[in-house]
Design a protein around this nucleic acid. Sequence first.
DNA 1: TCTGGGGTCCTAGGACCC
DNA 2: TCTGGGGTCCTAGGACCC
Length: 401
Amino acid sequence: MDAFYASVELLRYPQLKGLPVVIGGGRRKVDEAIRDLPEGATLADIPVGAFPLLKDYAGRGVITTATYPARQFGVGSAMGLMKAAKLCPQAIILPVDFDEYRRFSRRFKEVITEIAPVMEDRGVDEVYIDFTDVPGGQREGGRVLARLIQKSILEATGLTCSIGIAPNKLLAKMASEFDKPNGISVVFEGDLQSRIWPLPCRKVNGIGPKADEKLQRHEIRTIGELAARDREWLVANFGKATGAWMHEVAWGRDNRPVVTESEPVSMSRETTFNRDLQAVRDRAELGAIFTHLCEKVAEDLQRKGYVGKTIGIKLRYDDFKIATRDQTIDHFTADAKAIRQIAGRCLKRVPLERPLRLLGVRVGALAKVGDAATLADQPKASSRRRTPDDAGSVARTASLF
DNA sequence: TCTGGGGTCCTAGGACCC
DNA sequence: TCTGGGGTCCTAGGACCC
């Protein structure tokens, strides 16, 4: 989807069309503008001048999405709001409304599966679609079907998307970026040299900043340069799995299927504080946030019908370093109090000297509520492991003797 | 100019079992 | 005195993605 969050906001606030808008701010100013609306007026009646501007924004955070006019100023996703304010102070900033984006996400995915049922969910604004068995899916290299999908999504939601069509997911993902927004591009196997090899390695889904940096140190900047190295060299320098994978992707090869169904592995909630907090001085505040996070995760689990048995915490210190601790218990749970108790124990095992920036709570090793009962009925008797708590009980037992 | 939130997958060492 | 091989699970950290 094109600038998904921002595009959804523009449906509510059409008066902002054509203006630089970024998503990622706080609620307050926009709520005030809505409250100040005269009787009978709609969101579309809010004067442009009433919206908060980036230059007046003082909070922490990053931009999740920028409209295309904002991108002209060099503003983009994941950029700190402070930096964005320097680049484009006059941009309008709107708060994130994830529930609304999820509603539109469901709608555009429904539209797609009605036309092409083999669809893989890749998050709120992205999917893979298998055209292979869709009637007419091969006409004009897939263009005809892609146009139908674009038109149907636009009619149902008012949103545009860009579609890349290729023999596999790797190339389709790259192709989808060739003609944005609202574009279609078709990449054939024979286009590898002319259209893929000139691209920087970063364009490969799976090569991130670290791998790219290492590749650059070896004078490898483009996918073509990557393809020019032999497999043995890549394996020697990047390891067996990564090296072989890099060789395959550089030659445009990818045989991963389009996966239509998957089970969640973990659920978590985390929050970055408005200001850094100290474990000792801000104990009460931290405790309240901690409890709230546990309740939220428990709610998420219960609403979706999952229970988990690995409970963990995550901290981010003021120096941005991250620490995690987790503990696996011998039964499944989705209970806020139980989660809070185990997570609290995890918290005792992590250094708390530095000021904290973020706190998170995670529940993993998930099972569906129904399945968990079955799993619990067949305990692997001998596989019980010693937990940090057992150390205490051993000590207590020993002292009894 | 400091850098969100929610995820997945991989690696590597250690415990423990057969 | 020197000490296997194969396997699973647990834990912590890190890369990467949307």
